[in-house]
Simulated scan of single mutants.
Amino acid sequence: MTYHLILGDRAYSSWSLRAWLLVDRWDIDADISYVSFLSRDVEAQLERATPSRTVPTLVLADGTPVWDSLAVAETLAEAHPSIWPEDAPARAVARSLAAEMHSGFGALREVCPMNLRVAYQDWDPGDGVAADLRRLERIWDYALDRFGGPWLCGEYSAADAFYTPVAARIAGYGLNVSESAAAYVRAHLEEPSFRAWRALALTEGPDLPWYARSYPQADWPG
């Protein structure tokens, strides 16, 4: 089956990155189109494609839209089950991890929107972000210790795709995390699919000023 995957700006759309990783890492046949974030009329651009008018949206062969990232993962997994771990306990943990990312970490998302074109340093993210980081360390360590790595539940799975933008935020905003969490972040920065996505993000489209922050800047890590 060939899918149609509608995505947003590569530099800024964290949910689009998650969906793209699913099709790229598992070599899933998908025609990809992008909506522009420049004019902020994303809903108008998606009016005919999906009732949610959000990205990412996966359109099935019969025209049915799937407009939620977790639903996209589950829909793709019906034909490509290796998106989730084969081992049942690992699969359960991977789904728990992805669901928590899907619904949680609000402070990290609000204070540190994904921006793959710039890196920051030497600023105080506040208590809310710090609490989110400690929670990430705890659940990442649990999964990595239980399943032995190198990814959260052994081999790369949808759970890792869901945490890729989190790793990009930690790296891009110079956030302090434990040694084990930092190693997991580095694995994402070195992962070929993420590197390909970011390379395109650096060259496609203009900088969007509403994503910029006034913090001291640094070189992108890695």
Rank of each mutant, 00 (worst) to 15 (best):
Y3E: 02
H4A: 03
I6C: 00
L7E: 00
D9K: 02
A11W: 02
A11I: 06
Y12D: 11
Y12C: 07
S13M: 04
S13I: 03
S14N: 06
S16C: 05
A19W: 00
W20G: 12
W20P: 01
L21H: 05
V23H: 06
D24A: 15
R25T: 12
W26V: 08
W26T: 03
I28D: 07
D29I: 05
D29L: 04
D31K: 06
S33T: 04
Y34E: 04
V35L: 02
V35A: 00
V35T: 07
F37D: 01
S39A: 08
R40I: 05
R40F: 09
V42C: 09
A44C: 05
A44Y: 04
L46A: 07
E47T: 12
E47L: 08
E47K: 12
T50M: 09
T50R: 06
P51M: 15
S52W: 14
T54E: 11
P56G: 03
T57R: 08
V59I: 15
V59W: 03
A61S: 15
D62F: 13
D62L: 14
V66S: 11
A71M: 04
A73W: 01
E74A: 15
L76E: 06
A77L: 07
I83L: 15
E86Q: 14
E86A: 15
A88F: 13
A94L: 05
A94E: 10
S96V: 05
S96K: 03
L97R: 05
A99Y: 11
E100I: 02
E100C: 05
M101R: 08
H102L: 11
H102I: 13
G104Y: 11
G104S: 14
F105W: 13
G106D: 11
G106C: 07
L108H: 03
R109W: 09
V111D: 10
C112G: 09
M114E: 01
L116I: 06
R117Y: 11
V118K: 10
D122N: 13
P125M: 07
P125D: 00
G126H: 07
G128P: 07
D132P: 01
L133K: 01
L133C: 00
R135T: 05
L136T: 09
L136D: 10
L136K: 10
R138G: 08
W140Q: 00
W140N: 01
D145G: 08
G149C: 11
W151Q: 00
W151H: 05
G154F: 08
E155V: 12
Y156Q: 07
Y156C: 01
Y156N: 02
A158N: 13
A161C: 15
F162W: 04
A168P: 05
A168C: 07
R169L: 12
R169G: 11
R169S: 08
R169H: 10
I170P: 06
G174Q: 04
N176T: 14
S178Y: 13
E179G: 13
S180G: 06
Y184Q: 07
Y184P: 01
Y184T: 07
A187R: 13
L189I: 15
L189M: 15
E190L: 14
P192R: 10
W197R: 02
A199D: 14
A199H: 12
A199V: 10
T203E: 14
T203R: 15
E204L: 04
P206N: 09
D207T: 15
D207P: 01
L208G: 00
P209Y: 01
R213P: 01
R213V: 03
Q217S: 02
W220N: 09
P221A: 10
G222H: 12
G222V: 14
